[in-house]
Amino acid sequence: METVLSIKGLSKQYGKVRALDNLNLEVKKGDVFGILGPNGSGKTTTLGIILSVINQTSGQFEWFGEKANKDTRKRIGAILEHPIFYPYLTAVQNLKIVCDIKEVPYDRVDQVLTQVGLDERKDTKFKTFSLGMKQRLSIASALLCNPTVMILDEPTNGLDPQGIAEIRELIIEIANSGKTIIIASHLLDEVQKVCSHFCVLQRGKLIYNGLVEDVGKGSVSVEVKADHDDLQTVLEESGLGTKVKRELDKYIMTMEGDHSAAEVNAYLFKKGIVAKHLLVQSKSLEKQFLEILAGNKEGGAQ
């Protein structure tokens, strides 16, 4: 598979703070790559460096197998947390400037504005736009050059649920068209829904890099509800799980080995208990993420 972005030994020092520490990453063509991490872990710094707005302290990166030159960024569409445009210019005037910068013909402007549903407001000034409209304009701007790679930094921050859903739909749509997407986010749910790969940063260090579909593998837990006075003890004595935890009226048992929910059901029935609720939970990205962070406490601490 063709490598779109490769990052080798990238570091960034802000005074005494090491915002990024020897980062190595590779993004292949067609990946939807999520960069996760708590606030201040170096996500935005990484994106800033690969977009040439932040100078790295050491290390290097390559786009499409070559050092970043004046034409690489013209093939990239970027949607960042805060949409940035000239407030005193209209949507069309703003996009024409982007056309000139990216050297694409002006007739794309109307196409992308229709695509994001802003054609009615195309001659209004940017400063009169609502946040959702501003975000849609930045999507339009990113689509202008028909990019091979899309970069999104916290794309749904500050949007209402409808806006979030629209952005998510758009990401999936772009991903389906075979484009490579790099997303920085702290919304795990979002990454799990759209990404194929993800990595976790903590205090500027890469602490995990893998496939999203691997997340669900491994330990499974079963949620049980039944009319019994001491379900906790019964479940603990079954020997099927490692741990039983109570949450309001239900009990969550972390399964041991290959034991399945069916075995739990059969066991309870043998004990004369009828389960009225039985739910299999595979591990969510959120859980995995928190585990990764917790497991690396010493590694990331300074």
């Binding site: 040439s52 445009f85 000239y86 910068i101 990216k102």
Partner: peptide, 15 residues
Amino acid sequence: SYRTIRQNVIDGLTK
């Protein structure tokens, strides 16, 4: 102040 210099560079203008 509008941070458009940053956006210009991201869009493909060199510094």
